[in-house]
């Protein structure tokens, strides 16, 4: 087990290196002249040239990547003398358009994304699994058909359409909620909930549909297994049979999908953050695309991708916990 974990962590680090390099090469394709974007309106060719050297943009992609890696490990100083900008380790780059280290910008935006992801995750996982179990137990009856029908529609709804429809009816037409304006929960809990409730619900509906269908098919498979009959024959209450035997055995693919979905959400629900104007990673990324702000793009891409890679590992380790039949080696 320990050997397995160490090996996987090493592979994970390797993958991160490879990924960051790919991101560097990919983004070097962008025609944006980052140096030109650093000094606003008073740009003389000399300042641009000086900034180019300060940012290390006069070097090749490989060299730039190497400097970036050094920055992550040891921190990095842009320029020399009194005007130098120090970016402490781990330095993910420095955004000259915003005059901030990229990591600081990302950390500022992380809470909104984190709250969005966690709230939606709890809602869609509980809702999806519960509906899936219910549907499986009522297999073929009208309840099952209704749940399956609704979940298929939910699964097919494009997020931006349902987001806009919700904004149109709830906020504009019926004015049930004020226009979304994000605050931290400890500043104004009520406004926080008022802002987050719609994006939470929209994400929950979109994702729960998938989990309902997945849970149902898993349950239908395990409910036919012999050990379920054994469990019933032992006289276990039906509740225990379903929860501890049938659902647990079918949980593995649900956990896989949930882990990856959560990681994906941590990367920012770009569309919903845009629609509900949440200051999360997704909207940071979109504004970085529009500016264009290369250091932020690289930073956000790397952080988001790391979430997915870490989630992959966590999910694989969880397998062994959930399903004792799995042996990691």
């Amino acid at each position: 087990m320990a050997g397995y974990v160490i090996r996987r962590v090493l592979i994970m680090l390797l993958l991160l290196l490879l990924l960051s390099f790919t991101v560097f090469v990919l983004f070097s394709l962008l025609p944006a002249d980052v140096a030109r974007l650093t000094c606003g309106k008073i740009c003389t060719p000399e300042t641009i040239e000086a900034n180019r050297i300060r940012l290390g943009l006069d070097k090749s992609v490989i060299e730039q990547y190497w400097i970036f890696l050094q920055g992550v490990v040891m921190g990095r100083t842009y320029g020399q003398g009194p005007g130098a900008i120090v970016c402490n380790a781990p330095c993910l780059g420095y955004s000259f358009t915003r005059q901030e280290p990229v990591l600081k910008l990302i950390l500022e935006r992380l809470p909104a994304t984190l709250f969005l992801a966690m709230g939606a995750f709890v809602l869609f996982l509980i809702g999806g699994v519960a509906l899936g179990v219910y549907s499986a137990l009522r297999r073929g009856r009208w309840q099952d058909k209704t749940v399956m029908g609704i979940s298929l529609v939910g699964y097919s709804l494009p997020s931006f359409f349902i987001g806009l429809v919700v904004v149109y009816f709830i906020i504009i037409r019926w004015q049930l909620l004020p226009f979304p304006s994000y605050v931290n929960p400890w500043v104004d809990p009520l406004q926080f909930v008022q802002t987050m409730i719609l994006p939470w619900l929209v994400l929950a509906v979109l994702y729960a549909a998938f989990y309902t269908r997945l849970t149902r098919s898993q349950m239908l498979e395990t409910l036919n297994d012999d050990y379920i009959r054994t469990a019933r024959a032992k006289g276990l209450p039906e509740r225990v049979v379903i929860r501890k035997h049938a659902l647990r055995a079918g949980l593995t693919p649900i956990v896989t999908a949930a882990g990856l979905d959560f990681a994906g959400l941590l990367g920012g629900a770009i569309i919903l953050e845009t629609i509900f104007s949440l200051p999360g990673l997704g909207s940071l990324a979109v504004s970085a695309v529009l500016s264009p702000d290369l250091p932020i793009l690289v930073g956000v891409t790397l952080v988001t991708a790391s979430f997915v890679i870490v989630a992959n590992l966590v999910v694989d380790l969880l397998y062994a916990v959930i399903d004792p039949r799995v042996r990691l080696a």
Partner: peptide, 19 residues
């Protein structure tokens, strides 16, 4: 794994102009 780890929407947005 590498491809799957990429934030698809973000990359597509970022690279659309250049590519």
């Amino acid at each position: 794994d590498l491809i799957l780890a990429f934030p698809f929407l973000l990359i597509v947005l970022a690279l659309s102009g250049a590519l």
